[in-house]
């Protein structure tokens, strides 16, 4: 199973589902929904959080949340 955390900077993926429902609803409101394409742009200087490009804007989430989001590599 691949999660958003496994993608390296520059890699793209498509959200397929969630590992847990403990995710904050804000993540869904920001549009990280099943079927959405997402690119990992970079990691913060200390390795966490990560900078994602989703629906044309940059969203930053922690790895702790990223590993709850399942993706398929594109």
């Amino acid at each position: 199973m691949v999660t958003l955390r496994d993608l390296r900077p520059g890699e793209r993926g498509r959200v397929t589902g969630y590992v847990s429902d403990r995710l904050p609803p804000r993540i869904f409101e920001m549009g990280l929904l099943p079927g959405t394409e997402v690119e990992v742009v970079r990691l913060a200087p200390l390795g966490d959080p990560i900078d994602l490009k989703v629906r044309g804007f940059h969203l930053s989430i922690r790895k702790h949340e990223a590993e709850l989001i399942q993706v398929e590599r594109l």
Binding site: R22, P24, R26, I27, M30, P49, D51, F57, H58, L59, S60, I61, R62, E65
Partner: peptide, 11 residues
């Protein structure tokens, strides 16, 4: 109380 960090990086 779980704190999360979901933040837009605006242009």
């Amino acid at each position: 109380e779980s704190a999360y960090f979901v933040m837009e990086l605006p242009p």
